[in-house]
Design a protein around this nucleic acid. Structure first.
Length: 872
RNA sequence: GCCCGCUUGAUGGAAUCGGUAGACAUAACGGACUUAAAAUCCGUAGCCCUUUGGGCGUGGGGGUUCGAGUCCCCCAGCGGGCACCA
């Protein structure tokens, strides 16, 4: 860095107060004019792809966005200063339900609503001063984006990664539409209030299960992901080893195939249970009205797993009996049970009440026997079995097999192996691996999404739309006055000639799940204008994977798992050469705010409330207000703060700084007035450190070692330590501690005494260091001060500071001295001092002697440079 | 119901590898400046006890260790996800 003498004249030009309005606009204009953040592939430079989860264009940005994009911006600016070729793009996740809801409620067309929202939100992002390459902006609702995913889908289809089958949906019998789980409230449609039914529908699926093993195994390679996200995905994929077992049915030729993870407990079987969607159940239901009623009542709970799991466990006894696979004389009753899912395993189970809690509950409800077949090692077997048979708690722990014929005495693992070996020998079953993960259903019976490029022909079946007829464009001449999907009743759009036989056929009217768009947008950003293909191979080879991906923890499983799958599917189909899209992942916390309620019980906006020392009142009528706990900012609770208003009042730098201060980024952040005030005051203080410095530093000269004494030396030391510590913190996304360390450096600058030797040079070095280090967080004021200090190259084009190792050397340390683990004093010693010497120094401390009293030390633990613990 | 987290002064948090708990802030209180207020600057402060000294203290209970906010077990409260919200 070139040193430049700043005359005092320059300093006096600085106004007493920092004018953020003028300065922020000035720098934003400058960055835009210089195309400062436009990225270009450059194989000679190390790249860094920083990406925040792209927003849904809801119409207004909220504080959660401000937090998300500020976090990403700090990393992008930091890496840029470190010399990386940074890609930091932005786009819009523009398909989805809210647009259709707006259309139904307000009569606005989803396309108009979405496009206008994008314009509004883009304008709201501008004043934040984000280092985004807007030249790469994409919106997923535009044909030039979704045409490529139609092609991808057809490639997946060719590769055997897409197929069609039936599955369950939530059906609203009044609106005649499929409802999202979110739209099912207490089993009823959110708008109609009618009880929701489960219905079967033919849908398209992507074969994510083809990659189940790889998706699971590769989690170990994602070392820059939070452990908890990896654990959640691990559990979601849910690999379990077990067996498929064939039960012969009494008096029938077909068999009942069940999946179990506990073949070792087969001798404890009390019943079999099948899903109500099992072919056997459907067969019975044809002639059994009572069973139909049972199925109808079970279907009333909807499709969400939470609803199914929390619903009361119920069974319907069928006339079927199943022969036990190891003893054909033993017959088990067969139930139809509401907790057996057709989607998992074979849609049928056998129940062992003694060793599975759900089976135990079921057995108690329907009076089935409970036979213990596993007992804890070294337990009194008969007493254990008797207690279990009489109780209501299943035993699911490890132990040895009992009452189990050929397995007796074997530990659980060995017994499983023995049971599978016997089943395989007798052709009654096989050992198998089952995943909890199900194939991804991508069909949605909605208008505002990407059309699925398929034509249904009565003669040829489902025919892919030929390449030269892509894209299948979503027609915009539709209305929302009638219930159901407008594509279904469009007069012309869906009627086409079959590409194969030329006879009349109809288009698929379902659209893709919006997770489809978000599963590859990160790749599109590498080459967003490409019209021929989804993206150029060289571009993705250079930019992918995303080095740092940032978003909410709520996407820990679905979006992230789908993107991992999609990347593999794209790799299989020759689109790119990486398997993992996101090298680094960071999950940010939510932005929360206190909640307020008026006397009437209505929620109040923070702006409607005045807080006083003795409580809070409603400004409009001076009535007392009930303060509620802090919750995620939401429109429904009205505990929101408008980012635009905050930026106008305090400036983008203050808003950004507050987002980064105090709360660790992965935890929830509580928005408070005092917090944003504090950030604003710090911005002003930073300005004063330059404009009204404690040390007149204009003639400071070079900052060389040995020329500093007293506070000036302290300032130099702290400045170098801060470079080292903040660099480390930013690399690890510990922005809150980085801010704390920058405040410490500010405090040190303020106490630098001008009479100390080297004060001017030390102060200047400290101030310049502070400004350079804070630039990624508060870029506008940093640039403003930097230029006022006489520099000619703006910080956006400057390199990151480096600490001089000579200033980082530490020669003495303070050690804690404990007696029996309790702190009794401290001592100063040279770094690396001998343990013996430290022992002697510690024992000589008066506090140690009085704490020790008459006792003699039994043992002394010395941890060099850290602690001396005397055990007496 | 199942899976995953979180819990530290009045408040947000720090303590990164098991080694001085409370960095840095916010709120509060005291002082300086001011006719006054704001702003700013300086100072005080975990809790309890009678101190100069001592005891207690990281949601609760137990354990491992010379030493636990940190590791293990149990419990409670709060939050995220559960496949068609994004």
């Amino acid at each position: 860095m070139k040193k430049r003498k700043a005359g005092i004249a320059i300093m006096t030009r600085m106004d007493e107060r920092y004018n953020f309005r003028e300065s922020e606009r000035k720098w934003q204009t400058y960055w835009a004019k210089e195309n400062a953040f436009v990225a270009e592939s450059n194989p000679d430079k190390p790249k860094c792809y920083v990406l925040e989860m792209f927003p849904y264009p809801s119409g207004r940005i909220h504080m959660g966005h401000v937090r998300n994009y500020t976090l990403g911006d700090v990393i992008a600016r930091f890496r840029r200063a470190q010399g990386f070729n940074v890609l930091h793009p932005m786009g819009w996740d523009a398909f989805g339900l809210p647009a259709e809801n707006a259309a139904i409620q307000n009569g606005v067309h989803p396309a108009k609503w979405t496009r206008e929202n994008i314009q509004t939100m883009k304008a709201q992002f501008d004043p934040l001063g984000l280092s985004i390459d807007w030249s790469r902006e994409i919106a997923t609702c535009e044909p030039d984006y979704y045409r490529h995913e139609q092609k991808m889908f057809l490639d997946f289809l060719k590769a055997g990664l897409a197929y069609r089958k039936t599955s369950m949906v939530n059906w609203d019998p009044v609106e005649h539409t499929v409802l999202a789980n979110e739209q099912v409230i207490d089993g009823k449609g959110w708008r109609s209030g009618a009880p929701v039914e489960r219905r079967e529908l033919a849908q398209w699926f992507l074969k994510i299960t083809a990659y189940a093993d790889d998706l699971l195994a590769a989690l170990d390679t994602l070392t820059d992901w939070p452990d908890r996200v990896r654990i959640m995905q691990h559990n979601w994929i849910g690999r379990s080893e077990g067996a498929r077992v064939s039960f012969d049915l009494v008096g029938r030729d077909d068999k009942l195939e069940v999946f179990t993870t506990r073949p070792d407990t087969l001798f404890g079987a009390a019943f079999c249970a099948i899903s109500m969607n099992h072919p056997l159940a459907k067969e019975l239901a044809e002639n059994d009205p009572a069973l139909r009623d049972f199925i109808t009542s079970c279907n009333a709970v909807g499709t969400s797993e939470a609803a199914i799991e929390t619903a009361e466990k119920m069974g319907y006894l069928t006339p079927f009996k199943a022969h036990h696979p190891f003893d054909s004389a033993w017959e088990l009753p067969v139930y139809i049970a509401n907790f057996v899912l057709m989607e998992y395993g074979t849609g049928a189970i056998f129940g062992c009440p003694a060793h599975d809690q759900r089976d135990m509950d079921f057995a108690r409800k329907y009076g089935l026997p409970v036979t213990a077949v596993v007992a804890p090692k070294d337990s009194d077997v008969s007493a254990f079995a008797t207690a279990l048979a009489a109780g209501t708690e299943a035993f699911t722990g490890d132990g040895v097999a009992i009452h189990s014929d050929f397995m007796n005495g074997l530990a659980v693992t060995e017994a499983k192996r023995a049971a599978i070996a016997r089943l395989e020998a007798e052709h009654r079953g096989t050992g198998t691996v089952q995943f909890r993960l199900r194939d991804w259903g991508v069909s949605r019976q909605r208008y505002w999404g990407c059309p699925i490029p398929i034509i249904h022909c009565p003669h040829c079946g489902a025919v892919p739309v030929p390449d030269d007829q892509l894209p299948v464009t979503l027609p915009e001449d539709v209305g929302f006055d009638l219930p159901g999907n407008p594509l279904e009743r469009h007069p012309t759009w869906k009627h086409v000639a079959c590409p194969q036989c030329g006879k009349p056929a109809v288009r698929e009217t379902d659209t893709f799940d919006t997770f489809f768009e978000s599963s590859w947008y990160f790749a599109r950003f590498c080459d967003p204008k490409n019209t021929a293909t989804a993206f150029d191979r060289a571009a993705v080879d250079y930019w992918l994977p995303v080095d740092q991906y940032i978003g909410g923890i709520e996407h820990a499983v679905l979006h992230l798992l789908y993107s991992r799958f999609f990347t593999r599917a794209m790799e299989t189909c020759g689109y790119l050469s990486v398997k993992e899209p996101f090298k680094g992942l960071f999950t940010q916390g939510m932005v929360c705010h206190e909640t307020y309620r008026a006397q009437s019980g209505a929620w109040l906006y923070p702006a409607e409330v005045e807080k006083r020392t003795d409580g809070a009142i409603e400004i409009a009528n001076a009535q007392p207000v009930t303060l509620g706990r802090s919750e995620k900012m939401s429109k429904s609770k009205k505990n929101t703060v408008d980012p635009g208003h905050i930026i106008e009042t305090y400036g983008a730098d203050a808003a950004r700084l507050f987002m980064l201060s105090d709360s660790p980024p992965d935890r929830d952040l509580e928005w408070t007035d005092s917090g944003i005030d504090g950030a604003w005051r710090y911005i002003q203080r930073l300005w004063r450190l330059a404009a009204q410095p404690a040390v007149p530093f204009a003639d400071g000269g070079e900052a060389t070692e040995g020329a500093f004494e007293g506070s000036a030396k302290d300032t130099m030391t702290l400045a170098h330590r801060t470079i080292s510590a903040v660099t480390d913190d930013l690399a690890k996304l510990r922005f809150n501690t980085a801010v704390a360390k920058l405040r410490e450096l500010s405090n040190q600058l303020a106490v630098t005494k001008s009479q100390d030797k080297g004060a001017a040079a030390g102060y200047r070095f400290g101030l310049e260091t502070l400004v350079r280090l804070i630039a990624p967080m508060t870029p506008h004021i940093a640039e403003e001060i930097w230029m006022a200090l006489g520099h000619t190259t703006p910080l956006v084009a400057s390199s990151w500071p480096e600490a001089d190792p000579a200033w980082l050397v530490v020669d003495t340390v303070t050690l804690a001295v404990q007696v029996n683990g309790k702190l009794r004093g401290t001592l100063e010693a040279a770094v690396g001092a001998e343990a013996k010497a430290l022992e002697a120094m510690a024992l000589a401390l008066p506090a140690v002697q009085s704490a020790l009293g008459e006792r003699t030390p039994k043992k002394i633990i010395v941890v060099p440079n850290k602690i001396v613990n005397i055990v007496g």
